[in-house]
Design a protein around this nucleic acid. Sequence first.
DNA 1: CATCATAATGTACGCGCGTTCATTCTAACG
DNA 2: CGTTAGAATGAACGCGCGTACATTATGATG
Lengths: 337, 337
Amino acid sequence: MRKQVADKAGVSEATVSRVFSGSEAVKPKTRERVLQAASELGYVPSELARQFAKRRSGNIGVVLPYLPKVQLFSTYYFSEILGGISEAARELGSDLLLLQRSPDERREYGLLFRQRKVGGLIVLGARDGEEEREALLELERDGHAYALVNQRMEGLEQRTVEADHREGSRLATAHLLEQGWSRPAFVGGPPDYSNSRDRLLGYRDAMSAAGAERLEPLVGNYSRKSGLEMADAAARLIRSGEADALAAANDRMAIGLLQGMRQLGLEAGRDYGLAGYDDSDGARLTQPALTSVSASFYEMGRLAARMALGELERPDGKLPPRLVVRESSLKRDVERN
Amino acid sequence: MRKQVADKAGVSEATVSRVFSGSEAVKPKTRERVLQAASELGYVPSELARQFAKRRSGNIGVVLPYLPKVQLFSTYYFSEILGGISEAARELGSDLLLLQRSPDERREYGLLFRQRKVGGLIVLGARDGEEEREALLELERDGHAYALVNQRMEGLEQRTVEADHREGSRLATAHLLEQGWSRPAFVGGPPDYSNSRDRLLGYRDAMSAAGAERLEPLVGNYSRKSGLEMADAAARLIRSGEADALAAANDRMAIGLLQGMRQLGLEAGRDYGLAGYDDSDGARLTQPALTSVSASFYEMGRLAARMALGELERPDGKLPPRLVVRESSLKRDVERN
DNA sequence: CATCATAATGTACGCGCGTTCATTCTAACG
DNA sequence: CGTTAGAATGAACGCGCGTACATTATGATG
């Protein structure tokens, strides 16, 4: 095939190759002839052969944890990150290889490079475990480009793309205080994620700065269901006057709380202040709409992709979060039409 | 590398190849020796070379429309479908190649096979246009395996995986009528999607069956924003008594309408009945919660993947939709705590 | 016009597998 | 024990590129 093009254009196969790989010097007139011939013969270089010859694929592998019952793509968090990755990969001429891996085949990241020849790797939803760390350290040792998203691991900090969750949480809590809610309580997530811990710290920062007394946090698991389940306890806090607002560590719990507490006769923005975290789509849909913190997951995906493609050596600090004020945190009566 | 393994195991390279490709007959004892040697030397066959030699990749390409401003993965529709595709591909031993393509490079589906050597193709968000059809017909002609999701095209019906949107829309409208809303109006999407047309037909089916007079539909573009923008017109319909309920062609428009009409003093479930379509996450978050139609997008993704891998010749009819009744369609006062 | 540096092109080969075809081993049978 | 069909293995090659190195064309300079 390439031979035919070469013959037709009166050049050698090497020249055809050079024309299509782009980088090398080819006389414009020759290039023209080759392209013309190729077009007439319908020749397109095979990406597969090209990758093989260069011993590398331009693909960036995205490892997602495989969780049988959970429909991962439905969650805002993963969706946004994937969107960002996809966008950046697109710009850099790579394609995405989606790799779902169940926990028992987890440690084989190295294989993906040797066997599948991915060009870079992004690991989403990594957990802080020994084998996970070892697998990643192997990548480090072999000089492979990869990125972790939102999960710091000891010794791998420079590979982590994350937002400044502590600051985000501080912003949300400080905002509640400014609005006149003087006793916000924190509703956190499981402490084995580094960002759960960070968000709790941010709450404490804000409380200390305001000289307010911090309350014992409620702990959920980031699901709306767990928010619903905590509504009882939260309502007691509010009714007893122990607390007058809630800073939740994510939107889904916040929405659960909002809905659960409504059942108990408490309205966000009227009877208590409420802030979420993530600025998910859902935050716009509740009544009242949920004040939240935007952590730019999309941007994180973009950064991760650039790291995985070797475009970026290390992230330039943590991404700054942004407070998105809606109604749930504003102190006023819920309007009624 | 393969040579070393062969030597160590005292066999030829061909035998090593046979052991790893699995299919061919190798004496168990020999296989054992080869695997042992490979394991000791850390040999893993290169997937890249394998794909190259076989002139095909086991990847299944998923083409997503690239829309600059829209963050595609955030939408429930695509997320669910991707989840289903990923699941089925996983089971069948394939990986997913995500391919975002902007509208102007749309017709090049054939290239993906010739150039990228994807093993199968799934096209999401296809549009009913001439070039689109031609590109797909080319695949058909070349005997490539591919699947369309939720977009019928003339002559390509057997390649389409879809839910019975007409029936789903009929269900929703009939439900509104049963609830005592006697004059539901339809809020549709752009008519160049086949399922927009189907949903309109379903509405008409229900209206005819009930002997009700059907109204001129409102037309939006499936976004929440367009729902907000139509709120004015919809409110007029309701206030004038021309209509007393709305059957929307998707949840996002329904949610926009719900929010927009609240601004105008109209509450769903009290002042008018409202049903959406898709059973998205958001349907659970509004107040009142949105009645919707669940179209099993996840299952559609699974089917599409099987078609794209040649596992499935043609879909076994359309997937049945399911009505999910929540509060927005129930005729009663909105409760007030 | 001869010289020479440099740009442009050609030659030849290897990347790591799968696979065809030839060859050798195995075991069942007469 | 000889024969033979069939199973197991080996030898050789090609898949379609990129690229190192050799070769030739180009054009500036003396």
